[in-house]
Amino acid sequence: MLETQRKPVPRNDGGELDTATAFLAFARESVLKKTDGLTEEQLRRVLVGSGTTLLGLVHHLTLAERVWFGHHIAGGPDPGDVGMVVPEGRTVAEVLAGYREAIEESDAAIRAAGHPDAPSAVSIDGKFHTLRWVLTHMTSETARHAGHADILREQLDGVTGR
């Protein structure tokens, strides 16, 4: 196995929001790192029975960023379905750029909310959860999918690490 993507976890401890956003950024970066150096065919290759692909994971996380931060925290439109099927005609470059753009938009929504206790602008199942809850949810969701990406990448070319 090639151990080429190892990076230590954040050491940020300057407050709740600083720590939370550092770990979310780390999980996002871990997902993107799994796409480095792969061909379009590899990024779209189905290696598991569920049909999950590396590109599909990135697509899904893009939509999740837009739902949780763009819609629920910032009050923007609901992008709808957050599935893992990349729409036909979407290029790898478009999917990756879309994720980076969604991250920037999410980070702006987090900064605008300003405090972990800030309530969501749009209710979640009838309740106005806090930014803290959304950050925790998205960090766990992104980290879970980063683990999936680790396994898919190792199956593709043997590269491991976070």
Rank of each mutant, 00 (worst) to 15 (best):
V46T: 05
V58A: 06
A97H: 01
R44C: 02
E65G: 10
T21H: 09
E105T: 05
D36K: 04
G114E: 09
L61Y: 07
I110E: 11
G56S: 08
D81E: 05
R45W: 02
F23L: 14
G37L: 12
P8H: 11
G98R: 00
T21G: 10
S120E: 08
V82N: 12
V58K: 04
A97Y: 00
G98M: 01
L17W: 06
T52W: 03
F26N: 14
M1Q: 09
D13Q: 15
I73N: 11
H115G: 06
D117H: 02
R90G: 01
A27W: 10
V82M: 14
G37F: 04
T53A: 03
V92S: 01
H59I: 05
G37I: 06
E40I: 06
Q42K: 10
F23S: 11
G76H: 07
T53S: 05
E65P: 09
G98Y: 00
P10K: 13
M1L: 09
D81P: 02
D107V: 12
T91Y: 00
G75S: 13
K34D: 03
V92C: 00
K34S: 06
P87G: 03
D81F: 01
L63H: 07
L17F: 05
H115L: 07
A27M: 12
G70I: 10
D18Q: 11
P77K: 05
P87W: 02
S50H: 09
A74R: 10
G83M: 10
G114C: 11
V86N: 03
E3K: 10
A112L: 07
G37E: 06
F23H: 15
A93K: 02
L32W: 04
H59N: 11
E101W: 01
R6H: 13
A113W: 13
G76W: 06
T21F: 10
I73Q: 12
E40W: 03
E88V: 10
F23C: 13
L38I: 04
T62C: 00
W68A: 00
L54T: 03
G49E: 13
T39S: 15
G15W: 03
P87Q: 02
H72A: 04
P116N: 07
T62H: 00
A74T: 12
L55H: 01
E29G: 15
E40N: 07
A74V: 09
G80K: 00
G75L: 13
E16I: 14
V95Q: 00
E16L: 15
R28F: 08
E3G: 07
S106N: 10
N12L: 14
Q5L: 15
T62F: 02
